[in-house]
Design a protein around this nucleic acid. Structure first.
Lengths: 202, 202
DNA sequence: CTCCGTCCATGAACGCCGTTCAATATGTTT
DNA sequence: AAACATATTGAACGGCGTTCATGGACGGAG
């Protein structure tokens, strides 16, 4: 009844995401343009718009892949039950992940359109993020009484935000403005102070 | 010997910065374009390139203005000598500042060109940042013995980095992904945990 | 008062970008 | 073979930062 597609819609999307990731890994995120992706895929630019609502939507799906890989890397981190040790191990996993996929990871936190009408993030995306926090919460659990789930969740998020400060400065090559220490050292120090702060009597 | 300029080079730069700030305050940072600034100034776009090396250089000078105003706001914050109280007061000043100049402040942490050849920040700009750290160090001083200047400096930077995590997420409108709390609440919580962590016995 | 040299100022042009959509190519069905 | 349906194209649009040949207005010389 009609012409046959070279790739199904789903195949096309996956191919586009593969291609986009390759471009980002090789040439950085500023090289990621609709035309570049299309050309490398061997399609015309117009096709991208039949598979995605726009470049922003495509990027959200790239983020999804990054978050999936991040979750897997973090979940594989060893556990001893001691918060301080487990946090440091988690940190090592995180740092290794960031080192390997620096550009993709940096994209997660780099807005292309910081203004205007911000695309509402899909529920499944928020779910992925929550899952990563879950790991942190588990590790922090021994520091809290069973009834303190809310405080635990709050602490996990707070620590994550603090570490996010390290990551962003490091990614933007601005950390050296603030401190001569390495991102790793700062992150470890951050966890130390945090665990002490959370363990302190109230 | 030659035609008279409507504005001196320095006047022109100041006028451009005023205009750029007005645009950002009224329409957000995505509305800040060379053409928009030139049109609103009553000049053509080409003139901007006689006064600035490019839009990025102009933005660094906008940052400088923001940092100056920030320093003034923070320096005026009241002091009691008690670190926790003074930090919270400093935070309140910071938060008030951010509320008033949200768009300009968000620009500080929003890279336009996160890749490519990152413009080396001028020394005077780094100096402005260091000055803000100085304020934090002063406030943290009571938590440290006189001989612990290095630890104090390290702690000040660590706290600043942690708060930077809050700022950047908030600026990118991503904080709500992490937590339902306001940036203000998170920042306060951050300071609390930090002061406890720094005060804890070693 | 005229003319000229100087320099301010312009804005079209370039090569990008994201996005759209009429036109076309190519396969399937009749 | 003809008709059809749709996958795919790529020129076009408006906007971006940036450049630079051109024009025009002023100060001074004759």
């Amino acid at each position: 009844m009609a012409r046959q597609a070279r790739h199904s819609r789903e195949e096309f999307r996956e191919l586009a995401l593969d291609t986009a990731q390759a471009i980002v890994a090789e040439q950085g995120m500023t090289a990621l343009t609709a035309r570049a992706v299309a050309a490398r895929m061997g399609y015309s630019v117009g096709m991208l718009y039949t598979a995605f609502d726009g470049i922003e939507e495509m990027i959200v799906h790239m983020h999804a892949r990054t978050l999936d890989a991040l979750y897997d890397a973090l979940a594989a981190s060893p556990r001893s039950g001691k918060p301080e040790a487990d946090l440091q191990a988690l940190l090592d996993s995180y740092l290794a992940f960031v080192r390997d996929r620096r550009a993709a990871w940096a994209m997660l936190f780099t807005d292309r359109q910081p203004d205007g009408a911000p695309i509402p993030l899909p529920a499944w995306y928020l779910e992925q993020i929550a899952r990563v926090f879950g790991l942190l919460e588990e590790i922090l659990a021994p520091l809290f009484a069973p009834g303190e789930a809310a405080a635990r969740a709050r602490a996990a998020r707070l620590l994550w935000i603090a570490l996010h400060g390290v990551w962003t400065l490091s990614a933007g090559e601005r950390l050296e403005i603030v401190t001569p220490e390495s991102a790793e050292a700062v992150a470890r120090h951050m966890v130390e102070v945090f665990v002490k702060g959370l363990s302190a009597p109230r």
